[in-house]
Structures are given as structure tokens and as C-alpha cells.
Amino acid sequence: MAKKILVVEDDKFLRELISQKLATEGYDVIEAVDGDKGIEKIRTEKPDMVLLDLIIPGIDGFEVLAKMKADPGTANIAVIVLSNLGQKDDIEKGLEMGANDYLIKAHFTPGEIVEKIQQILK
């Protein structure tokens, strides 16, 4: 069965690009455009992995991460933070809160992002 990935990203163009890329790689892709929708879909859809942007409308990515990690039902879902916040403290905060990886969007191509996903979901 195809692995299910939730893309939480408010930028329409980026969301569509990465979703398309993931779909072509054979993943089952679902989307959320803000933090509230994000946490809701994490709870209802139970995806295998969340690609999580940090600066998003509603509750921000860190809060989404905190909420899902605090809920035993969703705590084990893998998370890759995919953000353009590139400060060291943001990166450390994300990893400390339980993200499997932290990628700066501008530094990775969709292909490289897929590679990371594959590594983690292996």
C-alpha cells in the first residue's frame, strides 16, 4: 500500500509542486494549508509522514509539532520540517521537538526531499 504523506504548506505553488512530485513518486498525498487543518488531518488521516512548514496561518508549525507529539495516537508519525526558517535555533528547536529532519526549502530540490522521505520511511 502506498505510504500516505501530509503536506502542510500555505504557499499554493510550493504545495502543488511538492505534492505533484510526491504523487509521481507513488505516494498517497494529502494537503493542508494551515496549522489547524494540519493537526486535524494528522489526527483523522494518520499519515505515515508529515512534511511540515513552520510559518503558516493559524497555529504555527512548531505548535502543530508539539500537539502531535503530545498525543500518543499521533506521536509516532514521522515529521520532516520543510521551512525557510534557517536560523540555527529554529533548526535545533525543530529537531528537539521530535522532527526526524529539518530541511531548508531553498537548499534542497524536490528530488533531494524525496530522497530524505524515502530514507526515513524505509
Binding site: D11, F13, L14, L17, I18, K21, I55, S83, N84, L85, G86, I104, K105, A106, T109, P110, G111
Partner: peptide, 16 residues
């Protein structure tokens, strides 16, 4: 952050 977002989009689409 704001500047990187559109640049990321350009990077991704060009790469694809």
C-alpha cells in the same frame, strides 16, 4: 524567510 519562499519555488520548478 519571505525571500526564500519564492526562490525555493523557482529552484524546485527549474530542477524538475
Amino acid at each position: 524567510h519571505q525571500l526564500r519562499t519564492p526562490l525555493s519555488a523557482i529552484k524546485w520548478i527549474t530542477k524538475m
